[in-house]
Each structure stands twice: as structure tokens, then as C-alpha cells.
């Protein structure tokens, strides 16, 4: 504590210097890398507890399998053509759905955000659609397009489109007034203001919207595949669960988790890159 180093005299309290501690090279190395060491230790411990618990019969193998079994099942899975077909289908659904969402939501968001009255008119609907758990739309979308890939693409699309649109509208609205005034005082044309100010100013918001969308898009594709039971990694998980192959199911879960981590990291990286000049932004993640 603050006063720990004081020696007490009758009339003066003396603040003494800090005692130097001698540290070995290993101690110094640990202090520098403590964060990395401990976080790796945490992950290793998690898998160790899972494995040892399963071996000792504390963790029910029947439901949770064990890391070694999951690894073996995963290796077997990688040899199968059906698995790669599932991965391909899920990737295409994700890619096409997300790309469509960006293509539709960004221009619309820019326009809605730029015209204040238009944005007021769309506000209630955007807020409603953003607060709605998009997966609730699955049965409706099935009514529209059936159980095929189109349905899953549409669910991915719906999962991302409002999120990105809301973020874009927010971005356009917060383009700094002062900069706008500067541009206007130099008699810049509206088109010029739009391309030189509004679009770059909104970009970080769009990326943030993307980051929030990642989780929804992944959840969307998996639930849609569960629901449709046709093809994809979600189907693989569901089928493995239905046939009580917990090792295969866990492999599927690990796989989508890895995918989630990679996507989050990629978007997070892009976000940091675009926000070099802007303090981090606190967008609401709702559904």
C-alpha cells in the first residue's frame, strides 16, 4: 500500500526508496511473457480437465466425448468426401449471404442516413427488425423458397443486413458536424462531400456492423441447417447427435468455433486498421 515504505520518526515520517529485488533471467522472462503463458495454460487446463475427467468417468463420455476421441473422429472425418461437401455448402451459404447483405445494406444505409427525414421514416422498422431474433424468420423463409441452399443464404443475408444497415445509418449521422461545416464553407458540392467525407467517415461503422454480424451470420447458418436437415456442417452436427456419436458432434462444434474465432479475428483486425484515427466505438449489439 501507499504507506508501506515509511519509517516512523518522532517528528517526521520518512518515505524511503523502493527496495530493489534481484531477479533471475527466468523470472524476468516470465514477467515479460506472463500474459501469454497463463492464457495458454488456461486453454491447456481446460482440455486436460475434459480429458482426465472423461478418463476418470467424472465427465460423461456418452454425451461429451473426450479431446482424444474428438481428435480421432476429426481425423477420420477429414478423409471423407461427404464432410468436405458439407463444409463447401456451408461456406458458400455464408459467403453468398454475407456478400449480398453488404451489397444491399451499405448503399441503402448511406442513403437512409444522409436524408434525415427518410431515416426518421425508416427508424421504427429498422429498430423492430434489428430487435427481432432473425432466426424466427426461418419458417417463413422456408415457405418462400423451400429447404435448399437459397433458404440458408437468405437467413444469413437477413442475419447481417439490418445490423450492417443500422451501423451504416449511425455512421452517416455521426459524420462530424464540424467537418461538414468546413466542407460546406469551402462550397464543396454534395456529391463531393459524400465521397470525400461521408463514405470514409462511415467505413469504421460499417466494419463494426460486420463484426457484430459475424456471430449472427454463423448462428443463422447453423440453425438454418439444423432446421432444414439437408446439407452443411450444421447437418453433420445434428446427425451425429441424433445417432449418439458425441465425438463427431464435438468435432463439428470445435470446427465452427474455430471458424468463429477466425472470422472475428479477421474483422477485428480490419476494424482496428480502419479505426487507427478514431477512438473505439460502442455500437449496440442487440440480437
Amino acid at each position: 500500500m501507499a504507506r508501506a515504505s515509511t519509517a516512523d520518526g518522532p517528528t517526521f515520517r520518512t518515505v524511503l526508496p523502493r527496495q530493489r529485488r534481484r531477479r533471475s533471467a527466468a523470472q524476468r522472462w516470465y514477467r515479460r511473457n506472463e500474459r501469454l503463458v497463463l492464457s495458454l495454460l488456461g486453454i491447456v487446463a481446460f482440455f486436460a480437465v475434459w480429458q482426465l475427467g472423461a478418463d476418470a468417468g467424472i465427465v460423461d463420455r456418452f454425451f461429451f466425448s473426450s479431446p482424444s476421441e474428438v481428435a480421432i473422429a476429426g481425423w477420420a472425418e477429414l478423409q471423407r468426401a461427404r464432410f468436405w461437401e458439407d463444409v463447401r455448402v456451408s461456406s458458400v451459404e455464408l459467403a453468398v449471404g454475407s456478400a449480398l447483405a453488404v451489397i444491399v445494406s451499405v448503399p441503402l444505409g448511406l442513403v437512409i442516413g444522409w436524408y434525415r427525414r427518410l431515416s426518421y421514416a425508416f427508424d421504427p422498422w429498422l429498430n423492430f427488425l434489428n430487435a427481432l431474433p432473425r432466426v424466427a424468420l426461418i419458417p417463413l423463409v422456408v415457405l418462400w423458397v423451400g429447404l435448399g441452399v437459397e433458404m440458408k443464404m437468405l437467413i444469413v443475408f437477413l442475419g447481417a443486413v439490418f445490423t450492417i444497415m443500422v451501423a451504416t445509418v449511425e455512421g452517416v449521422r455521426t459524420v462530424e458536424r464540424q467537418l461538414l461545416d468546413v466542407a460546406r464553407s469551402f462550397r464543396a458540392s454534395e456529391a463531393r462531400i459524400f465521397t470525400s467525407l461521408v463514405i470514409p467517415g462511415t467505413l469504421p461503422f460499417i466494419i463494426s456492423g460486420l463484426r457484430i454480424a459475424v456471430g449472427r451470420v454463423l448462428a443463422g447458418v447453423i440453425i438454418a441447417e439444423f432446421y432444414a436437415q439437408t446439407q452443411g456442417v450444421g447437418v453433420m452436427i445434428a446427425k451425429a447427435a441424433a445417432t449418439l456419436q458425441s465425438d463427431r458432434m464435438m468435432f463439428g462444434v470445435v470446427l465452427v468455433t474455430l471458424l468463429g474465432i477466425i472470422l472475428y479475428e479477421a474483422v477485428g483486425y480490419a476494424e482496428r486498421w480502419f479505426q487507427r484515427w478514431r477512438p473505439s466505438l460502442d455500437l449496440e449489439e442487440t440480437t
Partner: peptide, 14 residues
């Protein structure tokens, strides 16, 4: 007392 000096001392009257 928010930081500690590396050497030297400071006396404060009680």
C-alpha cells in the same frame, strides 16, 4: 506515496 523513488529520502512533518 503513489510512486516510490529509486533512491533518496523524503521527510514529512508529523
Amino acid at each position: 506515496g503513489l510512486l516510490r523513488q529509486t533512491s533518496g529520502e523524503i521527510k514529512l512533518h508529523r
